[in-house]
Nucleic acid binder design. Structure first.
Length: 503
RNA sequence: GGCAGGGUAGCUCAGCUGGUUAGAGCACAGCACUCAUAAUGCUGGGGUCGCGGGUUCGAGUCCCGCCCCUGCUACCA
């Protein structure tokens, strides 16, 4: 069975991971875990983009070889993502031989199938000798390089191989407009891509003459592959392309990327694949950005440090929750410690954590920790089943914020039910049947919540799952969410799932 | 400049094809309860719905103008 194949963008190995990177990896992980909950086999790819001029220069500046440099960066990223519970099962680095093989194979195939679409041409641009790279219009400050304002930019020509991107415009445009086989989401991003496509496309140069740190261009001694014709292909090379079995994984079901690189994924990438006659990915999801106290998150020192600090503050699961629940995975959102603390305390500590405490404490106190039979397995009015359905619909639509909201709303419903039902009063009155029913309904709701929070907070979900006496079954059972069944289970009141902040 | 989206309670946002006193969460105040992480529940205060015109019996919701914010406007990723 073909796995459900999801990828994240590969990050440029030029600095440390920061909150902006984390939002994307965590969002993709939530989606991957959601699909695993459904019982689908999932293939989840993450990785690093390790070629290019800047990496080369940064390594040089650090007095290291480029390979040593990217080795260090790659390890740092992996450590970070594992620490944030990202459950990727392949880590692709563009400096790996398997990747270079895929890149060269795809280029060779494009040349074979469409010989006219790879042609030698002249790239002309303004070259900065200080940076040793071409500068674009938008990068100029007063007509000069921002980094080397004292130097003149030199108009320079370079013989490169070009890809006839313009020839693919109509086909890509039709695909994006049809929005079925190849979907660009959310709609805002699709509209942007459509407008770019309608304006028309220019051919792009895809080889570089002066860049030693890259994949050798097929049949060329001196040129390397342009970074996007390198980086994008990682999604494909990770399947083993062109070796046996690659098409048992490809095409990707979802590429998760940042809004800033949608054009590469939604225009160049499909054109490349069409040229090579390789199936297209089914969907591109372009998320927004994390703002840091209202400002853009960049790669500067202070903000990269903030990721570690944020994860340490209330633990990685709480950071995952905040990024999905408050920042969101569609539009830009803001991150501040004030807001993080407030959401942590109200939704997690006082909300979900306290709900688990009070329910499990009552089962312990009134029923010796054994979940009684009785009740309907839901809150009155079936609100749990409704919340679950809304949650599933939101997840399916990649509305991660909306799915998280269903969790908090169910917690609120459960807390309200406790006040109304007043189990302590039932105990005092000796109304055993009714007390059994109330406790059973509440425990069932906790089971449901454990499954619902699993994609967002896998570690906390497991802790709650164990507290519910389910240690020998995996939490990844959607069936338990639909029809919770833990009658007779021996529960324990857990250590506080989400300890309150020190006063 | 062009294209797109947005400006609604202190904060983050819902408000579909116009219709009773504009909603939610957080924060704030009061009350209730005791199973619980001094947690929870209930009630309440709080908004010229960016500005100015217009259409209409009636506009946050439609039209015109203006102000402000954000994104995109391609070979840096």
């Amino acid at each position: 069975m073909k796995p459900w194949y999801i990828t994240t963008a590969i990050d440029y190995a030029n600095g440390d991971p920061h909150l902006g990177h984390a939002l994307e990896k965590i969002g993709a992980d939530v989606i991957a875990r959601w699909h695993r909950l459904q019982g689908e086999p999932v293939r989840f790819l993450m990785g690093m983009d390790e070629h290019g001029q800047k990496v080369f220069q940064t390594a040089q500046a650090a007095g290291m070889s480029p390979q040593d440099w990217v080795d260090g960066i790659s390890e740092r990223f992996e450590t970070t993502w594992r620490g944030l519970h990202c459950s990727y099962d392949d880590w692709m680095r563009t400096t790996e031989p398997r990747h270079a093989a895929g890149v060269q194979a795809l280029l060779t195939r494009i040349r074979e199938r469409c010989p006219d679409d790879l042609f030698v041409g002249e790239y002309e641009g303004l070259y900065c000798v200080g940076c040793e790279e071409f500068k674009q219009e938008g990068q100029l400050l007063n007509g000069r390089c921002g980094e080397h304002p004292s130097r003149e930019l030199v108009p320079t020509k370079e013989r490169n191989t070009f890809f006839r991107l313009s020839a693919y415009r109509d086909r890509v445009l039709a695909l994006v407009e049809a929005n079925s086989a190849f979907q660009v989401e959310p709609q805002i991003r699709r509209n942007e891509i459509l407008s770019v496509l309608r304006e028309g496309l220019q051919d792009i140069s895809i080889s570089r003459a002066r860049l030693p740190w890259g994949i050798p261009f097929p049949d060329s001694d001196e040129q390397t592959v342009y970074v996007w014709f390198d980086a994008l292909i990682n999604y494909l090379s990770a399947t083993g392309y062109p070796g046996d079995g690659w098409d048992a994984v490809w095409p990707a079901d979802l590429h998760v990327v940042g809004k800033g690189i949608t054009r590469f994924h939604c225009i160049i990438w499909p054109a490349m694949l069409i040229a090579a006659d390789v199936p297209l990915p089914k969907q591109i999801w372009a998320h927004g950005y994390v703002q840091w106290g209202g400002a853009k998150v960049s790669k500067s020192e202070g903000e990269s440090a903030s990721l570690d600090e944020s994860a340490a503050r209330h633990g990685p699961d709480a950071l995952r929750w905040f990024l999905m629940r408050e920042v969101g995975f569609e539009n830009d959102g803001d991150f501040t410690f004030e807001r993080f603390d407030a959401v942590y305390e109200s939704e997690l500590a006082n909300g979900l954590g306290n709900l688990a405490s009070r329910v499990l404490a009552m089962v312990g106190k009134y029923r010796d920790g054994v979940v009684p039979a009785g009740g309907e397995g839901d809150l009155p009015g079936g609100v749990g089943a409704v919340a679950l359905a809304s949650y599933a619909a939101a997840m399916t639509a990649t509305d991660l914020k909306g799915a998280a909201r269903q969790i908090t709303e169910l917690v609120t419903e459960a807390n309200g039910y406790i006040t109304t039902a007043a189990p302590w009063a039932l105990a005092k009155a000796g109304d055993d049947a009714q007390l059994d029913a109330v406790l059973a309904n509440l425990t069932a709701t906790l089971v449901r919540l454990a499954v619902m929070i699993y994609p967002f907070m896998p570690e906390k979900a497991t802790a709650l799952w164990v507290a519910l006496g389910q240690a020998d079954t995996p939490v990844t059972g959607w069936g338990q969410a639909k029809r919770p069944d833990v009658v007779g289970a021996q529960v324990v009141k857990p250590e506080n799932l989400f300890p309150r902040l020190a006063p």
